[in-house]
Amino acid sequence: MLIEALLTMLAVAAPHKAPAAIVAPSSVFAATPSPAYQPQARAVDNWRFESALALEMAPVAAIRRALGAEAGEPARCVKLNNYWCIKSAGWNGEIAADADGHVAFASAEEGAAVAALLLRRYYVNYGRRTARAIVERWAPAQCSLVFAPAAPRRPAVALGLPASRGGMARMSPQRVASMGIALRGIQGTLRARWLAAHGRGGVNLKTARRPLARPVDLIPAPSIMAGVSELPARREKLAELIEPAPRLTIADLPPSPAPRPPPLGVSNCSGELARIATYAANMAQGVVGGPNEDLTLFTADGAPTENLAKVMANMAAVEIGPARPRDALIRIAVAQLRQMLEGATKPAGDAAPAAAAAQPPPAHAGR
């Protein structure tokens, strides 16, 4: 009955007006049990009521959401009270995490407070001042370079060859043969077999008459009969011309070229890069002129500016679209961040009123 009464009050109020449950959540949830994470449903058990109060919804849609009668299925981060899809890191209000590492917050207010704190870390501590730089770290591309494995190389000693002949050792064993006289020709082609049978100049090595071991000197002829007389120098020259070709060995062959490096395979990242570019453009919309301009989320001393609330609203619209968080939820998160920063910079010896000292520190600030 309490839920129905609150939703009736929400239906009467203006759609953009923050409900009383968001302005003073402790007074409403004081009697409710502690929220719990449901692994089977991948949701926090109070996500319906939290989203009905924290998201911009029509009154009828909010009532259907709270009663579990909505038509469609919301984004998974809505069920986690995590409208910015923050990953687990031991944040305040974190009660669990899903299989992908997204935090399940106890309330939407705690999720918004952590988002504001995390954006300050990105901007101030990490120096990521543009929408593109923040998105590349906030929602990085899910692709990377993949090196193709190199084919195993067989060492030279595997074929029983010396190390100096490692180039020929990469050939298959049946192709390694003595290269003195290839009886069937290199690789067994028709032309190779013919050249192997006839040798240089087309001479058949089987039927050709070999020169005598020692040339016979002919009878000296008159010098007028040029070409008939056989002088010793001419005989030696003729013997060199008909001398058989030298025998070739494997060592005389030129080394084989070095193997090419393995190809470098790159997974297709075009879709991820387009997603990051679209995310960054939507994040900078209405704040700066483009995704590569400084968002000016914080001042020089680290205090949040008005742009922080605008950027948080744009980011949540991308993460849980088409749903959008209410402005009151984001303003409360920014106010809590500002209060936490002011408390950290206050001198330790500053005297504070007793009433202020009795107040507890902000419960929803990130670590």
Results as ranks from 00 to 15, higher is better:
336 Q>V: 08
363 A>L: 13
139 A>H: 02
75 A>S: 07
97 A>T: 04
97 A>S: 08
271 G>K: 09
35 P>A: 03
12 V>H: 14
179 M>E: 14
22 I>S: 01
75 A>F: 02
50 E>T: 06
50 E>V: 06
66 A>R: 03
190 L>D: 12
184 R>E: 12
87 K>P: 00
224 I>D: 05
7 L>C: 13
228 V>D: 09
157 V>T: 06
150 A>G: 07
98 D>F: 01
34 S>H: 07
246 P>K: 02
277 A>E: 13
181 I>L: 08
229 S>G: 13
346 K>V: 12
9 M>K: 15
135 V>Y: 01
65 R>K: 09
332 I>L: 15
16 H>F: 13
18 A>P: 03
25 P>H: 11
225 M>K: 08
313 A>C: 06
236 E>H: 14
205 L>Q: 10
361 P>D: 12
95 I>R: 04
338 R>Y: 07
329 L>H: 04
355 A>K: 09
38 Q>I: 04
183 L>M: 09
318 V>R: 09
114 V>H: 00
166 G>I: 05
334 V>R: 03
285 Q>R: 14
325 P>Y: 02
196 A>Y: 11
119 L>M: 08
95 I>F: 05
248 L>Q: 09
68 G>L: 08
250 I>K: 05
248 L>S: 11
34 S>M: 12
189 T>K: 01
256 S>V: 15
72 G>F: 10
176 V>P: 02
175 R>W: 13
217 D>H: 13
143 C>M: 04
25 P>D: 10
17 K>I: 12
283 M>D: 01
117 L>S: 09
283 M>R: 02
233 A>S: 11
148 A>N: 13
239 A>F: 05
146 V>Y: 11
219 I>S: 08
131 A>I: 00
231 L>V: 15
90 G>I: 00
128 R>N: 13
340 M>T: 06
41 A>F: 12
339 Q>W: 06
181 I>M: 11
191 R>G: 14
82 N>A: 03
93 G>V: 02
63 I>T: 07
229 S>T: 15
203 V>E: 04
63 I>V: 12
52 A>T: 03
220 P>L: 07
265 G>Q: 15
359 Q>E: 07
238 L>Y: 08
118 L>H: 01
7 L>G: 04
111 G>A: 08
123 Y>W: 05
341 L>W: 03
32 T>N: 04
313 A>I: 11
97 A>I: 00
333 A>C: 08
307 N>A: 10
332 I>Q: 08
51 S>K: 01
178 S>Q: 11
308 L>K: 02
215 P>N: 01
58 A>D: 13
195 L>P: 04
54 A>V: 11
317 A>T: 06
164 S>Q: 08
90 G>H: 03
234 R>T: 06
328 A>W: 01
329 L>F: 09
53 L>D: 04
28 V>R: 03
3 I>L: 06
302 G>Y: 14
312 M>F: 14
52 A>V: 06
21 A>W: 14
235 R>A: 04
